[in-house]
Amino acid sequence: MKDTNALSSRKKKTTVADIISLILLFLLTFIFVFPFYWIVTGAFKDQKIAVQLPPQWFPTDPTLTSFVTLFKNPALQWLWNSVFIALATMVLVCLTAALAGYVLAKKRFYGQALIFSMFIIAMALPKQVVLVPLVRMINALGFHNTMAAVILPAVGWPFGIFLMKQFSETIPGELLEAAKIDGCGELKTFFNIVIPIIKPGIAALAIFTFITAWNDYFMQLIMLNTRAKLTLPLGIATLQAEFATNYGVLMAGAALAAVPIVTVFIAFQKYFTQGITMGAVKG
């Protein structure tokens, strides 16, 4: 993905339409950034200040009382659960998807078309269809109310395979041929030749999976139910039921859930964008 846009942009006459567009764009920017801003600043407001009107647009005397209340709940445990679930899902998805995507792109074998179309169809499937049987399966496997109950079904989701297939298409066939002639085994070829080439793809998938797993509230809600097992998003949802309108505490929780993931996102934005773009190119 070369950055050709900026280079080739020529000086054009700025018209009234351009100015209106820019004004609108900045207005929208404000609307999109505001909720995040309100979370982060709200976290440092005392409940009394949080609900006062006219609102305090910036916390003039920031306080940690909301965080103190928050940590009376097992919020650190929730944070750890979220991190573990997101990391484990990420590693498993990247591994299984890289292996599968590579052969789907570069090998010709019996049943290939069938398997690939099954993956494609499943991607459009709403999770709710498989909801009840999935929960039953998790219970049968003895994973009820464990992190595995959230991690394993996410690994079954075929988006990663699709993305890795897209990236694997770019591996030059001659390179694989050459490896074969040199007597390089299949696994060795995969780790020494394929992996280095599709590394940016793996990075994209890793960051994408991490964010998706971190925010997969639905699966967490269905699968986890005792207080110590919750994730951060699920924990906040529980707090919302208990604290109703204690917005200070809720924002402290929301900030704890959002700030790490937003930081990760901004740090790896380049890979993430690439992943989304590649995932959309129809194969």
């Binding site: 999109f32 950034v33 909720p35 995040f36 309100w38 979370i39 709200g42 964010i211 971190w214 925010n215 509230y217 998003p233 699920l234 906040i236 949802a237 919302q240 917005y247 809720l250 924002m251 929780g253 929301a254 900030a255 859930a257 959002a258 993931i261 937003v262 996102f265």
Partner: peptide
């Protein structure tokens, strides 16, 4: 993309 990354639950409570 910020609201997506922030997460449904955090976005919802705010």
């Amino acid at each position: 993309y910020l609201p997506v990354v922030t997460g449904t639950v955090a976005v919802t409570v705010v």
